[in-house]
Nucleic acid binder design. Structure first.
Length: 511
RNA sequence: CGGAGUGUAGCUUAGCCUGGUAAAGCGCCUGCUUCGGGAGCAGGAGAGCGGAGGUUCGAAUCCUCUCACUCCGACCA
């Protein structure tokens, strides 16, 4: 049987990705460069992610708040590194009025803003300015904030979900009395992201520290979770930064400690974005479209009634509605099962394929025969095809209701296990020299160049030496992803400098 | 931001070189047949060719400018 998508992953991965976004009804182009319309199905996924992460953020002691979209340009002036990092991609608001001049609507030259406003690329500066006002005493600390917002970075090259000019995210910002406490917070949120990725998105990741040249502008340490896409490239799926006292110094966030001395606070920031959806697509998608882990599927069970313009249609519909209702009484992952009856008046087969492409974990097809027999016929999205065609299963209604929670947790687990084996199988060790590394990646050629990642030991060089290594890697289109938190018990020597290694790092191609 | 390419009905495309007033398949609507796994036949609706300007009696076709998208590169938490 033919695949549901016109392009396979093997044929052309980037095009396959675009097709999934389109065919799964996730999002579409908006006509504004780098900005996308997120359609209800795509938004539903984001809502599920948001909801579960929001709970975790609150459970770790943070409060939600909201800061403005527009930030005075002068705020960026204060932190040099930060400005350098973002200057090239900031959108700037310069006028506050339009005027028709020669019949053409344009910014009114007489309505130029005295100080231009920047559309936030991230909110460290404006939240820092508030912290400066709020933090006076050690008793005011820690400040633990989070906001759900959109941000804008004028990217040169955009890709749906993976790199859009405007994207949605959550950004956490905290201020602490000391380094240890701030670092602890940084690591705590990195772990929250790991759990979100692995348990909720079923997307295995490697958590670790970014090398110096990949740090967030203005950070002392940047940590990331890195996920492996099915083409072997790495996707930075979340970051957590220890900002030291850089921002506190730039913005004068100081407090009086127990001894009456004035000291700078230590700040952190951390975020994940709609990019996660891109990660889910490239982790779980197949040649029949998207596959959603049940925990983020807007509908976990979709019921497709087989309607034929016959009198028994009414019975079929009633049976389906009743099944949906019964499913909602069952709980899976600690919540009611999300069941949906697709009552649209199109042919059942077409509806089925639509839901397969959208990635609904379980699709039931109910016809008159199921109704009379009291049965449920269904497909598991993670095991669509069997020996002979579609792998349609059947259970009695009671058995289906009894099994549904197990089916959903089983699908969630099988998606994770599959992705985890893929990740483990494609991280290569045993590369102990630069030559070996070069050979490994150069051999691959262009098209079928599936190489995944490698783990190599290095001496964590800095400055000039690091820059040279970066260039060497760049020639192979490689980057250092991170130094995993989980390190091997012993290391050989650095493959770049031959000095004794201090840690092992992940190297690979990346999005 | 540099290189290459694309933009014609909801989708995929033909037409463009050699200007003459838009075509096909899929989808959609209607009817009949079919009906448990991407049905068949017949009829029908639907675009003025990304946008703006120009050349011309006449432009989807030629010229200029612009916008968007795709791929590669550069850049990028």
């Amino acid at each position: 049987m033919e695949n549901a998508l016109p392009v396979t992953r093997r044929q052309n991965f980037p095009q396959w990705y675009q097709t999934v976004v389109d065919q799964a009804d996730l999002a579409e182009e908006s006509g504004v460069r780098g900005c996308m319309v997120i359609k209800p199905w795509g938004w539903g996924i984001w809502e599920r992610i948001q909801q579960q992460l929001d709970r975790m953020i609150k459970e770790t002691g943070h409060e939600n708040c909201y800061f403005p979209l527009l930030i005075p340009l002068s705020y960026f002036q204060k932190e040099a590194e930060h400005v350098d990092g973002f200057a090239k991609e900031m959108a700037v608001v310069t006028h506050h009025r339009l005027k028709a001049i020669d019949g053409k609507l344009q910014p009114d030259p007489e309505a130029a803003l005295e100080e231009p406003l920047v559309i936030r690329p991230t909110s460290e500066t404006i939240i820092g300015s508030a912290m400066q006002r709020w933090v006076k005493s050690y008793r005011d600390l820690p400040v633990m904030l989070n906001q759900w917002a959109n941000v804008m970075r004028w990217e040169m090259r955009t890709r749906m979900f993976l790199r859009t000019a405007e994207f949605l995210w959550q950004e956490g910002h905290t201020a602490h009395a000391g380094r240890d406490e701030a670092m602890e917070e940084t690591m705590r949120m990195l772990e929250v992201y790991r759990i979100l990725a692995e348990d909720v998105l079923a997307m295995p990741v490697v958590a670790g520290e970014k090398p110096p040249h990949e740090r967030f502008p203005g950070a002392d340490n940047t940590f990331s979770i890195e996920a492996m896409m099915q083409d072997g490239k790495a996707l930075q799926a979340g970051t957590s930064h220890y900002l030291g006292t850089h921002f506190a110094q730039a913005q004068d966030i100081r407090y009086q400690d127990e001894n009456g001395g004035l000291v700078h606070a230590h700040t952190t920031s951390w975020g994940v974005s709609t990019r996660l959806i891109g990660g889910v697509i490239m982790t779980h998608g197949d040649d029949d479209g998207l596959q959603l882990p049940p925990r983020i599927a807007p509908h976990q069970v979709v019921i497709v009634p087989m309607l034929r313009d016959k009198p028994e249609d009414a019975d079929v519909l009633a049976y389906c509605q009743d099944l949906a209702k019964a499913l909602r009484q069952v709980s899976a992952f600690g919540e009611p099962v999300r069941a949906h009856v697709d009552v649209r008046k199109t042919k059942a087969v077409n509806k089925r394929w639509a839901w397969v492409k959208r990635g609904a974990p379980i699709v039931c097809e109910i016809g008159p025969r199921d109704v009379t027999g009291g049965n449920v016929s269904f497909l598991r999205r993670d095991a669509l095809r069997g020996e002979k065609g579609m792998n349609m299963q059947a259970r009695t209604r009671e058995a289906f209701l009894a099994d549904i929670a197990g089916l959903l947790t089983g699908i969630q687990q099988s998606l994770f296990d599959r992705a985890k084996s893929f990740l483990d199988a494609n991280i290569t060790g045993g590369i102990d020299s630069l030559d070996a590394l070069t050979t490994y990646f150069a051999e691959a050629g262009e098209e079928e160049s599936f190489r995944g990642w490698v783990r190599v030991a290095w001496a964590k060089p800095e400055g000039e030496e690091l820059a040279r290594i970066e260039q060497t890697l760049k020639a192979l289109k490689l980057t250092v992803r991170n130094a995993p938190l989980v390190q091997p018990p012993s290391l050989g020597s650095c493959i770049f400098t031959c000095r004794p290694a201090v840690e092992e790092i992940i190297v690979g191609r990346a999005y």
